[in-house]
Structures are given as structure tokens and as C-alpha cells.
């Protein structure tokens, strides 16, 4: 993943920046130029609350090469209090316990490595809240 491409994603990945539509209140993550609900173009930047609920989940047993060392790992679609949904790994727990309805917090973590001589790539992962 070339670095200019990585740089562009930093606001959403590091700070959970999203866009709230002024017309219909829909929060899109990451922010979009056009609201996916009403096509409104007046978008206000907001930061997602770093917590949410698991909508659906899986445990990846056969991973992509870049994630070989981590398998098996849990992945989930998490919905934040703003109604935004994001795909994330769920860590610091037994993967099979990650099921729909679980409460999680979103924490800043290392996601992957760019490879030989490349940068470390960060973002958010979910951690169960008990």
C-alpha cells in the first residue's frame, strides 16, 4: 500500500472522522461528499464515539497473507452511537465469544505492516466491554 494513499485515510482511521449530513442527520464513515441517504451535499465533520455494538461477526480461520500470524481472529461490523457502521477486528478476547449484540470500545491499534522497509499501518480495533 503506497504511502500517499495511506496518508489520505489518516483522518478517518486515526481519529474516526466521519461526516454528518445537515439535511437528514445521517452519519457516513468515512465522510462522503454526497450523503448516501438523501444526496445532500452539506456535510459537517464529526468524530465517532469510540464505542459501539456488534451487528454481525465472524472468526477468520483462513486469512490473507498479511494477517497469517494473527489467525484465527474475530471480525465484526460495529455500529457506533451515531449510527455509523465500520468493519473492524475484535481483539483481546476469545474470538468465538464475539457475537451480535456484544458491546465494544474502539481502540487505536496497529492494523498491518506495509512490508519490507514500509510503514506501520494503524487504525481502530474493537475490544469487548464487560
Amino acid at each position: 500500500m503506497p504511502s500517499p494513499r495511506y496518508t489520505r485515510e489518516i483522518p478517518s482511521r486515526y481519529r474516526l472522522e466521519a461526516g454528518r449530513c445537515k439535511g437528514c442527520d445521517k452519519v457516513a464513515y468515512p465522510a462522503r461528499r454526497v450523503c448516501p441517504s438523501c444526496r445532500g451535499k452539506e456535510i459537517q465533520m464529526v468524530n465517532l464515539t469510540p464505542k459501539g455494538k456488534v451487528v454481525t461477526s465472524t472468526v477468520i480461520h483462513v486469512p490473507p497473507d498479511d494477517f497469517l500470524m494473527e489467525a484465527p481472529y474475530a471480525m465484526a461490523i460495529v455500529e457506533t452511537p451515531e449510527g455509523a457502521r465500520l468493519m473492524t477486528q475484535v481483539v483481546d478476547c476469545e474470538p468465538s465469544t464475539v457475537l451480535p449484540g456484544m458491546d465494544v470500545s474502539l481502540e487505536f491499534r496497529l492494523i498491518r505492516k506495509e512490508g519490507k522497509g514500509g510503514i506501520l499501518c494503524y487504525g481502530h480495533k474493537a475490544v469487548p466491554v464487560f
Partner: peptide
């Protein structure tokens, strides 16, 4: 690529999430 693949999900993983939502 930016929202799904970056985080380590695979195609079977995506359909697995559809399956779990359907089971639920």
C-alpha cells in the same frame, strides 16, 4: 479496499457475516 480489506477481512469472511446475521 479501504474499509474492509485493510482490516483483514476475506470474501468468505464477508459471507460468514451475512450468514451469522441470517442465523441471528
Amino acid at each position: 479496499q479501504e474499509l474492509e480489506v485493510y482490516h483483514g477481512v476475506t470474501f468468505p469472511g464477508l459471507y460468514a457475516m451475512i450468514a451469522r446475521a441470517h442465523m441471528q
